[in-house]
Amino acid sequence: MPLTTSFTLSKQYLEECFDESLPFSKHAKPRYVFIVSLLLSGLCLLIFTNQHTVAGSILLGLGVLETISFIYRRTWWLTRQMWSRSANSEVTIMLDEQGFSSKNPYTETTLLWQDIKKHIDTKRGIILLAHNGGQSYISKSVLTDEMITLIKERCY
């Protein structure tokens, strides 16, 4: 018997999704080595050579851009999500014997139980980690207790 629930993909839901998923993401920490190497390379080109001022300026600019993109990664991610067609649409989640599926007027996604490597239980939701490296966040506020129990049983 499939278990079904629905919710609106609102800005608050997306904020929770980002905040709860970030600690388990590969983008949780800035790429310090990359940023420092861009900045140092740019500075060295500007200080020690006279011919490569354009290249040095570009490398400095890229280092600054990388720093800014890390600082504002949440805002930029939320903006992109809110620009998408799926924003503020009704999402239906269904759990059955096959796996987990979500559907809104624009997309339909299915994640089979055997494709899920493990689950991570966070304070406000559950992150499903797939074998292919993808991850899906589901807020506990939209799931019933029966759905949470089924996810935990199926995803070890």
Results as ranks from 00 to 15, higher is better:
residue 1 M to Q: 05
residue 2 P to F: 07
residue 4 T to A: 12
residue 4 T to I: 15
residue 6 S to H: 04
residue 6 S to K: 10
residue 7 F to Y: 15
residue 12 Q to V: 13
residue 12 Q to Y: 14
residue 13 Y to R: 04
residue 13 Y to I: 10
residue 14 L to N: 13
residue 14 L to I: 10
residue 14 L to P: 07
residue 15 E to P: 10
residue 16 E to I: 13
residue 17 C to G: 09
residue 17 C to A: 11
residue 19 D to Q: 13
residue 19 D to R: 04
residue 19 D to H: 11
residue 21 S to W: 12
residue 21 S to K: 12
residue 22 L to A: 07
residue 22 L to W: 06
residue 23 P to E: 01
residue 23 P to I: 06
residue 24 F to Q: 03
residue 28 A to Y: 14
residue 28 A to V: 11
residue 29 K to H: 11
residue 29 K to Y: 08
residue 29 K to L: 15
residue 30 P to H: 10
residue 30 P to T: 07
residue 30 P to E: 09
residue 31 R to M: 08
residue 32 Y to M: 13
residue 34 F to P: 02
residue 34 F to W: 13
residue 35 I to F: 01
residue 37 S to V: 05
residue 37 S to N: 00
residue 39 L to K: 06
residue 39 L to V: 07
residue 41 S to L: 13
residue 41 S to H: 05
residue 41 S to K: 04
residue 42 G to S: 03
residue 43 L to D: 01
residue 45 L to Q: 05
residue 46 L to G: 02
residue 46 L to I: 11
residue 49 T to S: 06
residue 51 Q to R: 09
residue 51 Q to K: 07
residue 52 H to Q: 13
residue 53 T to N: 13
residue 54 V to F: 11
residue 54 V to Q: 11
residue 56 G to V: 02
residue 56 G to L: 05
residue 58 I to Q: 02
residue 59 L to G: 03
residue 60 L to Q: 03
residue 61 G to S: 08
residue 62 L to G: 00
residue 63 G to E: 02
residue 64 V to P: 00
residue 64 V to I: 15
residue 65 L to T: 09
residue 66 E to I: 05
residue 67 T to A: 09
residue 68 I to W: 07
residue 69 S to G: 05
residue 72 Y to M: 04
residue 73 R to Y: 02
residue 74 R to E: 04
residue 76 W to V: 15
residue 76 W to P: 06
residue 77 W to F: 12
residue 77 W to E: 00
residue 77 W to I: 07
residue 78 L to C: 02
residue 78 L to D: 01
residue 79 T to L: 15
residue 79 T to G: 14
residue 80 R to L: 13
residue 81 Q to I: 05
residue 81 Q to V: 09
residue 81 Q to S: 08
residue 81 Q to H: 09
residue 82 M to N: 01
residue 82 M to W: 00
residue 83 W to M: 12
residue 84 S to A: 08
residue 87 A to L: 06
residue 91 V to Q: 00
residue 92 T to H: 12
residue 93 I to W: 06
residue 95 L to D: 01
residue 95 L to N: 04
residue 96 D to G: 01
residue 98 Q to H: 14
residue 100 F to A: 03
residue 101 S to N: 14
residue 101 S to E: 15
residue 102 S to R: 15
residue 102 S to P: 12
residue 103 K to P: 00
residue 106 Y to R: 11
residue 108 E to I: 11
residue 108 E to P: 05
residue 109 T to F: 12
residue 111 L to A: 12
residue 111 L to G: 05
residue 112 L to F: 09
residue 112 L to Q: 12
residue 112 L to I: 08
residue 112 L to H: 14
residue 113 W to R: 10
residue 114 Q to D: 13
residue 114 Q to I: 15
residue 115 D to R: 13
residue 116 I to K: 04
residue 116 I to D: 00
residue 118 K to A: 11
residue 122 T to G: 00
residue 124 R to D: 09
residue 125 G to V: 06
residue 127 I to V: 08
residue 128 L to C: 08
residue 131 H to E: 10
residue 132 N to S: 14
residue 133 G to Q: 04
residue 133 G to L: 03
residue 134 G to H: 09
residue 135 Q to L: 14
residue 135 Q to D: 11
residue 136 S to Q: 12
residue 136 S to I: 15
residue 138 I to G: 02
residue 139 S to P: 07
residue 139 S to G: 06
residue 140 K to L: 08
residue 140 K to M: 02
residue 142 V to H: 05
residue 143 L to Q: 02
residue 147 M to V: 02
residue 148 I to Q: 03
residue 149 T to P: 00
residue 149 T to C: 10
residue 150 L to W: 11
residue 152 K to T: 08
residue 153 E to H: 10
residue 155 C to L: 09
residue 156 Y to H: 12
